[in-house]
Design a protein around this nucleic acid. Structure first.
Lengths: 190, 190
DNA sequence: TACGGTGATGAGACCAAGTCCCATCACTGT
DNA sequence: ACAGTGATGGGACTTGGTCTCATCACCGTA
C-alpha cells in the first residue's frame, strides 16, 4: 500500500530527531524534516498534526500499555498494586537499548518550552488513562484520580532518573522505588 | 507613560474574551483582538507572547499569592496546613463577583485544545511554585512535591466545582473540602 | 494484458501566528 | 523650546498548518 519507501512515519520521526540535535528544534522547519526523509511538507502534516508531535509518536502505545496493565491486574490488587503493574509494563518500553534514544529525545524536549508544554499534555493524558482504567476496576473517584496522579508523578521521577547519567538500573526498579517513596511521604504531610 | 488610552493590556484581554465568546477562539485573529482594543497587531504581541496568553493574565499574581501564603505560614504549620493557607489565599481572587467572568473564560478554554494545553502548563507552574515555597520552609523533596501536587489537584477540582452551575459556596470552603477528601483517599490506596 | 479503483504522495496556493525593524507620537524634565 | 524616553503603528518577512487537486504505485479483475 505504501508508495516508494515504506515506514514514512518512522523516517520522519528519526529525521526530525537528527535535525533537532544538529540545529535545534526551533531552527529546523517541518519542510526540512520532510526533505531529509525524502518526502514533502504536506506529507509531514499528513502523518503528524503538529511539528511537536513528531517527538511523541509512541504515546498512544504507552497509554494502552498502562491502561491494559491496570485493567488486567488481579482482582485482589489494590489501587497502588494496579498502578504498580502499569509501571512494570512501562519497563517493556524503557529497555536499556532504548536509553540512548530516549536521552537524545529528552535533551531536545528540555531545550524548548513548546515541547515541555506538550510533554505535560502527554503526562496528563497518561494519568487520565490510568484513572479511567482504575474506575473500570470499581475504584471510586477521589481515590482513582489520586492513585493515577501518584503513579504519574512516580513515572515522571523514574523517567528522569533512568535517563540521567548515573543510573543503569532497570526501569521497573526505579519506578517502584519512586512510587514507594511517594507513599511513604504521605505520612509526612501532617 | 501610556500613549492614548491607558490599560492597553486589560483592554486587549477583555476584547479577546468578548471575541472568543462571539466567534470562538480559532475564528478570532490576533489582529481582530487588537483592532477591537483600538491597537495594532504588533502591540498585541508586545503585551502577550502568545495568542493563548491573553486568557492567562493573572497567573503570575496567582503564583505569588500561593507562594507567599506558603512562605508566610506559621512555623508550626505542617505541609498540608501550608498549602491549605495557599488555598485560602486563592479565595482572595476567586470572589463571587468574578464568578461570571471566570465561567466565561473557562468555557472558552474548554472549547479549544491549545488552551487546555496551556492551562496544564499554568497548573504545573503553580505546583512548582508551591513546591519551591515548601522547600524554603525546610520541607524535603518527596514530601514537598507531593504536597504541592495534592494542592494542585485540590485546586483544580475546587475550581471546577466553583465554576459549575450548582454551587455558590465560598471558594476556600470548597477547596478545603477537596483537599481533605484527597487526604482521606490516601487511606484507600492499599 | 488492459482496466478501473484505492490510498498515499507531491505541489502549490493560502491564511494566520509570531518576529523584527523603523518611524512616529505623547509625555516628561530641563 | 528641546532632547530623551517609552509605547505605539505599520509593514515586511518567516514558518506552522490547512486545503485542494493532480499524480503515481499497487491491487484485483476481466
Amino acid at each position: 500500500m505504501g508508495r516508494w519507501e515504506p515506514n514514512a512515519r518512522e523516517r520522519l520521526a528519526s529525521s526530525a530527531l537528527e535535525l533537532f540535535l544538529e540545529r535545534g528544534y526551533e531552527s529546523t522547519t517541518a519542510a526540512e524534516i520532510a526533505e531529509r526523509a525524502g518526502l514533502a511538507k504536506s506529507t509531514f502534516f499528513r502523518h503528524f498534526t503538529d511539528k511537536r508531535e513528531v517527538l511523541f509518536g509512541g504515546q498512544d502505545a504507552l497509554n494502552h500499555l498502562f491502561g491494559d496493565a491496570i485493567t488486567g491486574a488481579p482482582d485482589s490488587a489494590t489501587p497502588i498494586d494496579a498502578v504498580g503493574a502499569a509501571l512494570d509494563a512501562a519497563a517493556t518500553i524503557f529497555r536499556p537499548e532504548r536509553r540512548a534514544w530516549v536521552q537524545q529525545r529528552q535533551a531536545v524536549i528540555a531545550g524548548n518550552s513548546d515541547l515541555r508544554e506538550r510533554e505535560l499534555l502527554k503526562r496528563a493524558t497518561l494519568a487520565a488513562a490510568m484513572a479511567d482504567a482504575l474506575r473500570k476496576r470499581g475504584v471510586t473517584d477521589p481515590t482513582a484520580s489520586l492513585a493515577a496522579e501518584l503513579a504519574s508523578l512516580a513515572f515522571r521521577n523514574a523517567h528522569t532518573l533512568w535517563v540521567g547519567p548515573t543510573n543503569q538500573r532497570d526501569f521497573a526498579d526505579i519506578a517502584h522505588q519512586e512510587l514507594h517513596a511517594l507513599r511513604a511521604a504521605t505520612a509526612e504531610l501532617d
